[in-house]
């Protein structure tokens, strides 16, 4: 019911993906709702990260990869996977946060400013304002405002990951992809990232891959369960966890599997 009321931000339509001859995704169709958190869960190797990385055309960086099908981005109804679309333009609109914090070996400030520099932002003032705003949005400002010009590697793991989130936020992404963002963090840092995601969904659509079902249950509004490259079930998180439609999903979330 809730589904019908929500606008769709992006939608996969019969999406298949191949690493060379190996088919990693098999005809996936599902929506990503605007300003909601959508979680992708499933056992390792089920293709959830592969699926996530289709949204910002990350696979284009490596030879031998092939997409089939569409990912439609709204509101302009653009097929992200179309040949005529430059992956760089896709990545300009869609941010990503990785499994392990991967700040650049530069200062805190330069990390966040990088996306703006890439977009050709010259004005120093504009960059400074955006950086501060992004750090506020990533709930990191108070912790780093005194050391903006120190190396990002001096931050703790959790801070580094929030820095990576700030880095992505600085460029006002329409959709933010999280690839198991807390798998390298301790429980306290994990909690702060999850809290942050909750705040962020007011302004940005979030798609998150997680290997942790509790996390999916905690942070997401919608959940997709994937297995062996196929989408088994997609639905409102609460419903999917309480009353899964498929036996396979039930086995997975009740821990009888994987």
């Amino acid at each position: 019911m809730m589904e019908q009321l929500l606008a769709t931000k992006a939608e996969a339509r019969s999406l298949s993906f191949y690493y060379g001859d190996f088919q990693a995704l098999k005809g996936i169709s599902m929506p990503v709702h605007e300003r909601q958190v959508t979680a992708l869960i499933g056992p390792s190797g089920c293709g959830k990260s592969t699926f996530l990385r289709c949204f910002n055309r990350m696979h284009d960086l490596y030879p031998g990869n092939r997409y089939d099908g569409q990912i439609i981005l709204q509101p302009d109804n653009t097929d992200l996977l179309a040949r005529s679309i430059d992956p760089i333009d896709v990545r300009m609109r869609i941010g990503m946060v990785f499994q392990k914090p991967n700040p650049f070996p530069k200062t805190v400030f330069e990390n966040v400013a990088y996306g703006l520099r890439v977009r050709g932002e010259r004005s120093r003032r504009a960059v400074e304002e955006k950086v501060e705003q992004a750090l506020h949005d990533a709930a990191l400002w108070d912790e780093v405002k005194e050391r903006l010009h120190q190396p990002a590697y001096n931050l703790s793991g959790g801070q580094q990951q929030r820095l990576c989130i700030a880095r992505a936020l600085a460029t006002d992404p329409e959709l933010l992809l999280f690839d198991e963002p807390t798998s390298a963090l301790d429980p306290i840092a994990t909690a702060s990232i999850e809290e942050l995601m909750h705040d962020l969904k007011k302004r940005v659509t979030i798609l998150i891959v997680t290997h942790n079902m509790q996390q999916a249950a905690r942070v997401s509004d919608f959940t997709a369960y994937m297995y062996l490259g196929e989408l088994v079930e997609f639905g409102v998180t609460d419903e999917l966890f309480i009353k899964p439609q498929k036996k396979q999903t039930e086995d997975y979330i009740t821990g009888r599997f994987g």
Binding site: P75, D76, T78, I85, D86, I88, D89, M92, R93, E174
Partner: peptide, 20 residues
């Protein structure tokens, strides 16, 4: 949001993309 639409289709966009 119109900004985004323009971003991927407008002529100005196409020109800057070609330059890049």
């Amino acid at each position: 949001m119109a900004k985004a639409t323009a971003a991927l289709h407008g002529t100005a966009y196409l020109a800057s993309r070609r330059a890049r």
